[in-house]
C-alpha cells in the first residue's frame, strides 16, 4: 500500500488555483491603491512642485498647508457643507421613509421619483441647479415674471451663501438614497413589535420616537458613514455648480488638492492635503468596515 505522494498534481493545482485567481485583483489593489497611497504620503514630505521630486523636506508642506488661508477656508466650508448635508439628508430621508410607510397610495410611483437623481452624474446635477439658481434666468427671474418683484434668491452669486446652494443640490441628489435605506430598515422591523407597542397604548409620535427610530440605528449609522465619505470626496458637484466660487466661497479640500497639484504646481502641498483627506475618511470608514466584517465571521 502506497503512503506518500498520493496527492496528485491536479489536486495540488486545485489547492493553489483559488489563490492564483485572486492574485491579479489583489496585486492591482495593492499597487494601485496601497502602493499609491504610500507614494503620495512620501511625496507630501518632499519638495515636489510641477513634477514629483525627492528632496526631503519633512513636515514643511504640512506646516505651509495649515498656514494657507485657502486651505483653512476649504476646511471651514467642508465643515458647514458636511454638517448641513448629512443632517438635512438624514432628516429628509427619514421623513420621506416614515411617511411613505403609511400605506400611501401611489408609493410605487413616488419612490422612483425621489430616487432618480442618484442615477445622474454630479455634473448633470450641477448643470441643472446652476441655471435653476441663477438669478438672471432661474427661480428669481421667474418669480419676478410672476409678479413677485421683491423676491431675491441670489445665493449662488453671494460669497456668504454660495455654500448653501451646494448643500441644496447635493441633498437633491442623495436624499432619495437615504430614504431608500431607511425604508428598507422600516420594512425590516418586526410588525409584531409595532402591534405590541400600540396595544401598550403608545401614540404614533411615541411609537416612532421610542420604538421605531431606535430600531433604525444600523440604518442611521450606514447613512452617516456613506454621506460623510461622499461629503469629503465632493468634487464634481463643486466644479459643475460653482467652480469653487464666487471667490473661494465653495472651495472644498477636494478642489483645493486638485488646483494646488495640477494648476498651481505645488504638488507637495497637494499631496499633503490628499493625505489629510484620506486620514479623515479612514477615521470614519475603518472602524465601520471592521465592525461589519467582524460581525459576519
Amino acid at each position: 500500500m502506497t503512503r506518500q505522494g498520493e496527492t496528485d498534481f491536479r489536486t495540488r493545482l486545485q489547492h493553489w488555483l483559488p489563490k492564483v485567481v485572486l492574485s491579479p485583483s489583489l496585486a492591482m489593489v495593492l499597487v494601485f491603491v496601497y502602493g499609491f497611497i504610500l507614494f503620495t504620503i512620501y511625496l507630501s514630505f518632499t519638495d515636489s512642485r510641477i513634477l514629483p521630486s525627492y528632496g526631503w523636506v519633512g513636515l514643511e508642506n504640512y506646516s505651509k498647508l495649515w498656514r494657507l488661508s485657502h486651505w483653512t477656508t476649504s476646511l471651514t466650508n467642508l465643515g458647514i457643507y458636511a454638517f448641513l448635508y448629512i443632517t438635512i439628508c438624514t432628516a429628509l430621508g427619514l421623513a420621506l421613509a416614515i411617511f411613505l410607510d403609511q400605506k400611501i397610495r401611489g408609493e410605487g410611483a413616488l419612490r422612483p421619483i425621489y430616487l432618480y437623481p442618484m442615477a445622474l452624474s454630479f455634473i448633470v446635477t450641477g448643470t441643472a441647479w446652476k441655471w435653476f439658481l441663477d438669478p438672471g434666468i432661474g427661480i428669481e427671474h421667474t418669480m419676478h415674471l410672476w409678479g413677485w418683484e421683491s423676491f431675491r434668491f441670489g445665493w449662488i452669486k453671494d460669497r456668504d451663501f454660495a455654500i448653501y446652494t451646494l448643500v441644496i443640490a447635493a441633498v437633491w441628489q442623495t436624499s432619495g438614497f437615504v430614504m431608500a435605506m431607511f425604508l428598507a430598515g422600516l420594512r425590516g422591523i418586526d410588525s409584531e413589535i409595532m402591534k405590541a407597542a400600540q396595544i401598550d397604548g403608545a401614540s404614533n409620535f411615541n411609537l416612532y420616537r421610542r420604538i421605531v427610530i431606535p430600531l433604525l440605528r444600523p440604518a442611521f449609522l450606514s447613512a452617516f458613514v456613506i454621506l460623510a465619505h461622499l461629503a469629503i470626496k465632493s468634487y464634481d458637484l463643486v466644479i459643475a455648480l460653482t467652480g469653487g466660487g464666487p471667490g473661494r466661497a465653495t472651495e472644498l479640500p477636494a478642489t483645493f488638492m486638485y488646483s494646488y497639484t495640477f494648476t498651481r504646481n505645488q504638488m507637495g502641498i497637494g499631496a499633503s492635503s490628499a493625505v489629510i483627506m484620506l486620514m479623515t475618511i479612514a477615521a470614519i470608514m475603518v472602524p465601520y468596515l471592521y465592525a461589519e466584517l467582524r460581525e459576519r465571521k
Binding site: T2, E6, T7, D8, T11
Partner: peptide, 12 residues
C-alpha cells in the same frame, strides 16, 4: 479499498 486516500481529490 486498500488504497490510502489522504490528499486524493474527493472525486478520485
Amino acid at each position: 479499498n486498500g488504497r490510502v486516500v489522504n490528499g486524493v481529490h474527493p472525486s478520485n
